[in-house]
């Protein structure tokens, strides 16, 4: 039995479309005459900007050095106490080893999972196949409201599954159970280190 279409509904996707941004044409940059006073400020600005970049570079290098040492000291203390010590102070700086981990590729996750079973978990994200979606955009729009009119073959591949691998939440609290290998695991999962 076919459902009758009693009302014409707006296409869901069309209504979600963004308007095309107006392209800005690149204009040739012209230089205007500046007063000696303004020139003084421009020079000071350029100088300050340059110094800022130099300080940023210094900050980045020092941060990298401290973080390297902080990781080692954290692991040393973790081993001594047999538990996650949480945040800690290094002089005036507070360091936090977080229960957050950077994304990793499948082959890296496989190596970690082989060496440390239980640390890696996978999630599946479902996505529309864009080609099929565009091909049947009107029908799919209706289908979402009336569920009708898509060939079975297309329907079968309409939704794509994307698998992602992650380090399990809470892994940072379980390092002690890996004994001598805890350092290897720590560096493999690379928990995010923050400093303030």
């Amino acid at each position: 039995m076919q459902k009758s279409k009693t009302t014409v509904k707006a296409n869901l996707f069309t209504s979600a479309k963004k308007t095309t941004p107006v392209k800005e044409t690149k204009s040739k940059v012209i230089s205007l005459t500046i007063t000696p006073e303004l020139e003084k400020h421009v020079k000071a600005y350029v100088e300050a900007k340059s110094q800022c970049k130099n300080w940023d570079a210094k900050l980045s290098i020092e941060e990298g050095f401290i973080k390297d040492k902080a990781r080692d000291l954290y692991l040393e203390e973790y081993k001594k106490q047999g538990r996650n010590i949480g945040s800690f102070k290094l002089g005036d700086v507070t360091v936090s080893i977080q229960d957050r981990y950077p994304k990793m590729t499948d082959d890296v996750a496989t190596i970690i999972a082989e060496n440390f079973p239980g640390v890696i978990e996978s999630d599946t994200e479902y996505l529309f196949n864009q080609e099929i979606l565009k091909k049947h955009i009107e029908v799919i729009s209706d289908a979402l409201q009336n569920a009708e009119g898509i060939p079975e073959a297309d329907l079968a591949v309409l939704i794509e599954a994307k698998e992602t691998v992650n380090v399990k939440k809470g892994t940072i609290d379980t390092l002690a159970q890996y004994g001598e290998q805890m350092t290897d695991l720590f560096y493999a999962i690379a928990p995010i280190v923050s400093m303030r």
Partner: peptide, 15 residues
């Protein structure tokens, strides 16, 4: 040398 499985790696020791 640290593992290079992420785009941003080993940046703390070079300028």
């Amino acid at each position: 040398l640290e593992p290079g499985f992420r785009e941003r790696n080993n940046q703390s020791w070079q300028i």
